[in-house]
Structure formats: structure tokens, C-alpha cells
Amino acid sequence: MSIKEIQEEIVDEFSMFDDWMQRYEYIIELGKSLPLIDEQYKTDDHIIKGCQSKVWVHAQMTNDRLDFTADSDAIITKGIIAILVRVFGGQHPKDIMEADTEFLDEIGLKEHLSPTRANGLVSMVKQLKLYAVAYQTQLNS
């Protein structure tokens, strides 16, 4: 499935909910299904800078595709990183680098987060894209 198709799927899922309390509950549920990061990667090297809560992300390349595992010490944040892992996981680094994240606006996520969480969301997207750049550079060399 392409990044765009996954994003459209998420937009459809969020459109099923009438209010933001239901959407927050759904985000929390998504966090519970997150492929958890191995404890050995819960280090400062894997923490996403710019997040109010702690968010750890690990990336590894498998057959020219990036796989991500992650965790957070906050339930909403864990759900947010779960959404991003779902969108970008299993994708080619070049596709991740070129992907837009307008779907986050479409589901209303940015506007319904506190300013510090919204900044954290931007930091998470930036970090996943930085992993993609690093692995794409490896592929090109």
C-alpha cells in the first residue's frame, strides 16, 4: 500500500467519529497496537528532540524498505507516533522523504493538540524523514 493510500485510510477512519473525545480515544487505541521498540533502543540516541513527552523511535532497513518501532511515555503521544509509523513503516526511504503530511491537517490533528504537542508532532515527522534521508544516502552509496 502506498503512503497516500494509507493516509486516505486514516482520514476515512477519523471521519467516522463525531467529536474529538472519540478521536482521542481512537488515537489511544492506536497507541496500544504500536509495534514496540526493543528496550535496548530506549536510549537518548533514539529520543525525538522537541517532544514534551519521551518518544523513542528506531528504524531499520529491510529489503529497501524502512521499518519503524517506537514507544512513548504518554498515551496520546504514543497514539500519534503509531499513526506516523503506520504511514511511513514498510515504505521506501525516497517515498518517505517525498511524502506530504497534509492528512494530519485533514484529520484535524494539529489544531486539536496543545502547542507543545503540535511541535512534538512536527518533530516526530521530521525525525522519521531524517531516518529516510540517512537510509536513502546509504542506498545511493
Rank of each mutant, 00 (worst) to 15 (best):
L36N: 10
P93E: 01
D67Y: 14
T137Q: 13
H46W: 09
E5M: 06
G79S: 11
G90H: 05
N140M: 10
V87L: 04
W56I: 07
D45G: 02
E111L: 09
Y26V: 04
E98V: 03
T77A: 15
D64H: 11
I6Q: 08
I47A: 03
E39G: 05
E8S: 15
D105G: 07
I83W: 12
Q138K: 13
T62D: 12
A82N: 08
Q127L: 06
V11H: 10
E29A: 11
D64V: 03
F68G: 01
I81T: 12
A132S: 06
W56G: 06
T137F: 07
V125P: 00
V125K: 01
F103W: 06
F68Y: 03
L128P: 01
S2G: 08
I107P: 02
Q52C: 02
W56L: 09
I27R: 00
G108D: 04
K32N: 07
E13P: 09
G90M: 00
L121T: 00
K49I: 05
E102C: 12
V133I: 14
Q138G: 00
R65W: 04
L66Y: 05
V133M: 12
T101G: 00
H58V: 08
L30E: 13
E25L: 12
I75R: 14
S2K: 10
D19P: 05
L128T: 03
Q136K: 07
E9R: 15
F14R: 03
G79Y: 08
V57A: 13
Y131M: 06
D44L: 08
V11C: 09
K94C: 10
Q127Y: 10
K4A: 14
I10H: 09
D45A: 06
G50T: 04
T116Q: 14
T69Y: 09
L109N: 01
E98G: 03
F17V: 09
L130F: 05
M61Q: 13
K32S: 05
P35E: 01
N119D: 13
H112V: 04
P115H: 07
A70K: 02
E9P: 05
G120S: 02
E29P: 00
E9W: 11
I80A: 00
A59G: 15
V133W: 11
K54T: 15
L30T: 06
K42T: 05
L36G: 03
I81F: 10
L34G: 03
Y135N: 03
I107A: 02
N63Y: 12
N119T: 13
N63L: 11
D19G: 06
L130H: 11
I6L: 14
A99C: 04
I28T: 13
V55A: 08
D71R: 07
I81S: 10
Q136N: 11
H46R: 07
D71F: 02
L104P: 00
E111N: 13
E111R: 13
G89H: 07
D18K: 15
A82F: 09
